[in-house]
């Protein structure tokens, strides 16, 4: 009886301690004003993405043409003005947030899981397997990321799903390298040998001992890569290979608005600013995390 309550008490203790480690990182992250600014901006974007239907009606404001109100400057009814088809630019940016963040996160998840898996086994087992995996990835790495993405989209056809695959696949080599390097730095630690000495198999060693100890650089890299993926998505949409019109997407908005840039610069300015702020905020968070997760600065 008392034993059982003791078990529960200890389990609670374990939980609070685990939280406190995250709290440690959070405490250090809070000290960096730039990271907090980045976090504020990205929370604003997330908020916009989640509550998009409540902010602006998709069909009515973001998609439907309204020739009577085309090319209006920012006003109280259209905060960011309207585009060449009379669509509300603010509504389109809000809905575009959904696409950018969603595709950015999914493509990074694809790259992280595949690249992470390849990098982990390459780094852990080393030798020929390492060589085989990394040389193939080096070939991929030799092709510029955006060019590789263009090639994949061109081959598969332009759609949101193919866009995610394209950006995800082109990021695989980068993730594999970062994970491999992190694994290499951890795998010769004595506690790995100690884990082997208690009879842990490779799976337990990799998942419980190696990867949790190499998380810091991976988290930082993933954060930065979400930013560059958003850039990639916008770039592909800009050249017409990404999200197809009339779906609102920041890069696509830039592309269609650039014909009017001389007289109606706000058409491109606002989606451009959206991209800048999204990428900037993620980069600021990434830099802040890098400092917060660095054990040497403890």
């Amino acid at each position: 009886m008392s034993n059982k309550s003791e078990v529960i008490a200890t389990e609670n203790l374990i939980k609070t301690k685990k939280r406190s480690q995250g709290a440690d990182v959070w405490r250090r992250l809070k000290k960096s004003p730039t990271a907090m600014i980045g976090l504020g901006i990205i929370i604003l974007f997330l908020f916009m993405a989640v509550f998009a239907p409540m902010i602006a009606d998709y069909d009515d404001e973001a998609i439907k043409m309204n020739i009577k109100e085309r090319l209006q400057p920012p006003s109280s009814t259209h905060v960011f003005g309207t585009d060449e088809f009379g669509r509300d630019i603010f509504a389109r940016i809000v809905w575009g947030t959904r696409i950018s963040l969603f595709v950015g996160l999914i493509s990074v998840s694809i790259a992280l899981s595949i690249g992470g898996f390849l990098g982990a086994i390459a780094g852990y087992y080393g030798g020929r397997l390492d060589n085989a995996i990394m040389r193939v990835l080096d070939v991929l790495l030799a092709i510029p990321t955006i060019l590789l993405a263009i090639t994949i989209v061109a081959a598969l056809g332009a759609s949101v799903l193919n866009l995610m695959i394209a950006v995800g696949v082109s990021n695989i080599p980068g993730f594999a390298r970062v994970v491999r390097a992190a694994v290499l730095s951890v795998k010769d630690e004595e506690f790995i040998e100690a884990a082997r000495a208690i009879g842990a198999n490779d799976f337990i060693i990799i998942t419980r001992h190696v990867l949790p100890n190499s998380m810091a650089p991976i988290i930082v890299f993933a954060t930065l890569k979400v930013a560059s993926s958003i850039m990639g998505i916008s770039s592909l949409s800009f050249i017409g290979l990404g999200v197809q019109p009339p779906t609102p997407e920041w890069g696509g908005m830039l592309a269609s608005g650039r014909a009017y840039i001389r007289d109606y610069m706000y058409i491109v300015m606002f989606p451009g600013l959206a991209i800048v702020f999204a990428v900037l905020s993620l980069n600021l968070i990434g830099d802040g995390l890098r400092d917060a997760l660095d054990p040497k600065l403890k």
Binding site: I14, Q21, F191, A195, I198, G199, R208, H209, P212, N213
Partner: peptide, 16 residues
């Protein structure tokens, strides 16, 4: 260096 820094000592004993 023989203990994993990110796992609680209880969990490390329990693992074995």
């Amino acid at each position: 260096t023989a203990l994993n820094p990110v796992i609680t000592v209880g969990d490390q004993i329990a693992e074995a």
